[in-house]
């Protein structure tokens, strides 16, 4: 076995490559053909309502779950057959609960670091020195504390520290801020920004919160109904959204609503046809957030198919 040096590895090769990924539990199709890629250094958010298959997708990429079908490459390797060397280049941030409660923070990070030492390469010194790591996640003051004594926010930062102790080329974060108060959430977002700035670390995170995806990610991939229904930067997605507008008006006291891609043309025709009768005219462009929220609500009401279809219509 020889170490793959990330510098000499093809920088244009996608870090994550997913084509027609399918997952079926019994007779239930959870993923029905997922496609996306992540480039080196990119922060990618996998966004979708609860139950959309985000966790399933990320666990397949982490090599923790076997897929039913499809082509998946993570750092050029099929995660179903990823060896220890491949594992050493990944970081997985797990949600701790009460594991290693007796351990002291520094001892735990030093222990996990030992496993990465033989995977050091000329370009990447592994593991991350514990003092630097503690400082990066803001746990220097807690270094001597037992893990069980940490606050919820501190524990999550320790989870991140464990995830990055091997200086991964690719980091997975599954719903990293669930259960956070706004303060802890902001601190966590700062931490992710620092991580993506520091090295060329590629980050894949899942979230059901569009706001979080917009804040953290270079690119958002929206997963719903078992497939990717939108893919692009937050800006690009909202620009695409804004082509859709909602026109409201009334005629003889009766109220009307119409969604259209060509608001100007529609209003011109409306006046041409009804002239003076048109009243209470209102033209509103839907924001990305509104369109997304509508989709999520309908998805959660069990109308997944129509929700996804309409969303795709809106973002086309």
């Amino acid at each position: 076995m020889t170490a793959v040096d990330p510098v000499t590895a093809d920088p244009d090769q996608p870090v994550i490559e997913v084509t027609d990924l399918r997952m079926r539990y019994g007779s239930e199709d959870v993923l029905t053909g997922v496609d996306f890629t992540a480039r080196r250094g990119e922060v990618l958010a996998l966004l979708g309502p609860n139950g959309a298959g985000k966790t399933t997708t990320i666990e397949i990429l982490e090599g923790f779950r076997m897929r039913s079908a499809g082509h998946v490459r993570v750092l050029g390797v099929d995660p179903a057959h990823g060896g220890e060397e491949w594992r050493a280049r990944l970081g997985v941030v797990l949600q701790s609960w009460r594991d290693h409660g007796k351990w002291r923070v520094r001892a735990l990070l030093e222990h996990f670091g030992v496993y990465y030492r033989p995977y050091s390469t000329g370009a990447v010194k592994r593991p991350w020195p514990v003092d630097d790591l503690l400082e990066a996640v803001g746990l220097t003051a807690q270094a001597g504390q037992r893990v069980s004594q940490l606050s919820g926010g501190q524990r999550r930062r320790l989870d991140v520290a464990i995830g990055i102790v091997g200086r991964p080329e690719l980091l997975f974060l599954d719903e990293p801020t669930v259960g956070f108060d706004p303060q802890a959430r902001r601190e966590f977002h700062d931490l992710v920004h620092r991580l993506s700035d520091m090295d060329e670390t590629t980050i894949l995170l899942t979230t059901h919160d569009l706001d979080e995806a917009e804040k953290l990610a270079d690119r958002i991939v929206i997963l719903a109904g078992g497939r990717i229904i939108a893919d692009g930067s937050a800006d690009a997605l909202s620009r695409r959204m804004s082509t859709e507008a909602e026109v409201k008006w009334s005629r003889h006291g009766e109220h009307f609503v119409h969604s259209t891609l060509d608001a100007t043309g529609f209003v011109r025709r409306l006046f041409a046809e009804h002239g003076e009768d048109v009243a209470d005219l209102e033209v509103r462009r839907a924001t990305l957030e509104e369109t997304y929220m509508t989709m999520v609500q309908r998805f959660e009401q069990g109308r997944a198919e129509s929700a996804v279809a309409d969303f795709q219509e809106a973002t086309r």
Partner: peptide, 10 residues
Amino acid sequence: GTLLRAKAIP
């Protein structure tokens, strides 16, 4: 989750 952590490490 101790075991899962072990699994995530080479």
